[in-house]
Nucleic acid binder design. Structure first.
Lengths: 315, 315
DNA sequence: GTTTCGACGCAGCAATCGACGCAACTCGTA
DNA sequence: TACGAGTTGCGTCGATTGCTGCGTCGAAAC
């Protein structure tokens, strides 16, 4: 009984919101301590906290705050956070405000994901991504959810030179989610596709998306990861003899065509070399290199290679 | 034995606080002699004194007195970190030939892992690590298997300036394995521990090991990942208000003590700041920063923080 | 006679209060 | 397409609250 009184700061820390936000929620939505004398400090009981947990969870899921507050306020007594089978798309009211991430018209789920990222809530981030992956698959999740949110963070990051920690956390969570997909779909057959970032290229997330998409349809691959120097890539090709190599470059600076030329000149030259990512310039690519425009195209190309190999070896 | 009965004045002199403060601590926080008849003189046993020492140390480090008291009150049950059930490698057979990785005396499993890494066989790598994690736990796997192999790769890499692709692949696989552990053990309660690499620090694997170890015992945390600039770290602390922050630095160049100072000066200053990793120099750390020597110690410190917070908020 | 006891009070300081405003998103409208 | 209106999270400011260490005082314990 004595310890049932949490201060405003403690509650804010628990929920991952600012103290001022708690005050705002109190006066705007009536979501405050049940007994509070104006001027005195707020003391939140477990019941009050449970209400706020609901509020936070709903907003993280993309529900508009006003609606979430209405929901939380009428929640009679649900101390443990349970599962409300809430489907996206309920919110009709306006939304926005505060230090948020622009996600364009990517939908409430993306908004919820962006909010979870802003509060560094890796659990919510992971669950949101996993749900979407399970429901819509890798390609749709990447194009419809992850890329908009990541782009929004990057945009904001470029503008304010902040949010680096948010960007990193999102990257990690996305990476983990993709790895989870790969683990859930054991690959069939030997890996004939090699995925690699260009030299000095640090962004490997799109490549991981491709890897997850491949895994999802049962295509086996090898993933080298970020920042692979050209000699190391050639060395890997010579050691493993892949049929197709995908080289990702996110920015111009890492898109040296020379590393593609080196691939084509390797002793065990791959059948297909894909230059993926916005870094590559179409006019500077050596002959024989294919440049997919998006994840879906890269995926279908990779599948085509797999199929052709299946034919040539099985037939 | 002779000093089993310390008077209030003696204890006060020993701790460097006023006698009245001892009385206050007794009646406000229950931090008094275990056996005390009201009206009679207080007699402090060594156990009582130990509790008070904890109380004083924590408050000196900046912990709020109420919180420190809660911590001190249930201190006796803080067993030192032990229990590493790692079965030592007993390999006697020769091994080697070709391009291999030196793993020292880390056992046959490590040698197998190194070979799989050389083959770029991510499936075998992943399975080996997962098996070890399941059998021996995170700490033992890290110390006994992963660290030796990673060190071996790094050593060879430094010597031959090759193997970069092997190093990357291993990193990815280890990272995935740790993420898998984290996913398999859903965390309990809100995250109060923040894990972050130092500015410009690219090695995040040891930090991920700590994260996985925390997850394994059900402790919730937030992981920011590699290359977190000092302002971003402070920003994250202010937004999430963690109780403890672990900052990892692998090399001297990234171990700028200033980022720790900034942490301690943050508006929502964490209870505990841990400077982890071989980069930090003990003599350059600001006061109030703790420097764990290995994974196990960092782990037990983090657990201690968690326990104390559980008491203060829920107990 | 010295030390400690319990009670009371005080001053410094951190946390919080209420009020206000800013920035930024979304949506309707022109 | 551009722009204003409505929303919303949160930073800031001056004032207030409440926690904390410790000094003081008469009485009791050693």
């Amino acid at each position: 009984m004595a310890d049932e009184a949490l201060s405003a700061g403690a509650v804010a820390r628990r929920l991952g919101v600012a103290v001022t936000t708690l005050r705002t929620w109190h006066q705007r939505y009536g979501l405050g301590p049940s007994e509070h004398v104006p001027g005195h400090h707020r003391r939140y009981t477990p019941a009050d906290l449970a209400r706020l947990e609901i509020m936070r969870r709903l907003t993280v899921e993309g529900v508009s705050p006003a609606e979430a507050a209405r929901w939380a306020r009428q929640s009679p007594a649900v101390p443990p956070p349970e599962r409300l089978g809430l489907k996206a798309g309920v919110s009709t009211a306006r939304d926005g405000g505060g230090a948020t991430i622009p996600v364009g018209r990517a939908g409430p789920v993306a908004r919820g994901l962006a909010r979870a990222a802003m509060r560094l809530d890796s659990v919510a981030i992971g669950r949101t991504i996993a749900d979407s992956l399970a429901a819509d698959g890798v390609v749709a999740t990447w194009e419809g959810l992850l890329r908009p949110v990541l782009a929004g963070i990057g945009e904001r990051h470029a503008a304010t030179s902040g949010l680096i920690e948010v960007e990193h956390l999102m990257s990690r969570c996305v990476s983990e989610a993709f790895a989870s997909v790969a683990r859930a779909h054991p690959a069939v057959g030997p890996p004939r596709i090699l995925l690699s970032c260009a030299d000095e290229e640090q962004h490997s997330l799109p490549l991981e998306a491709l890897a997850a998409a491949l895994a999802e349809i049962g295509v086996s691959y090898r993933m080298l990861g970020a920042r692979v120097p050209a000699p190391a890539l050639v060395e890997a090709v010579n050691r493993t003899g892949p049929a197709a190599v995908v080289v990702w470059s996110h920015i111009r600076a890492t898109a040296d065509p020379h590393q593609l030329t080196a691939l084509l000149a390797a002793p065990r030259r791959p059948l297909l070399v894909l230059a993926a990512g916005p870094g590559w310039r179409a006019d500077s690519l050596p002959a024989g290199v294919v440049r997919p425009v998006d994840l879906a195209e890269a995926l279908s190309l990779a599948v085509a290679v797999r199929d052709s190999l299946d034919q040539s070896t099985a037939g």
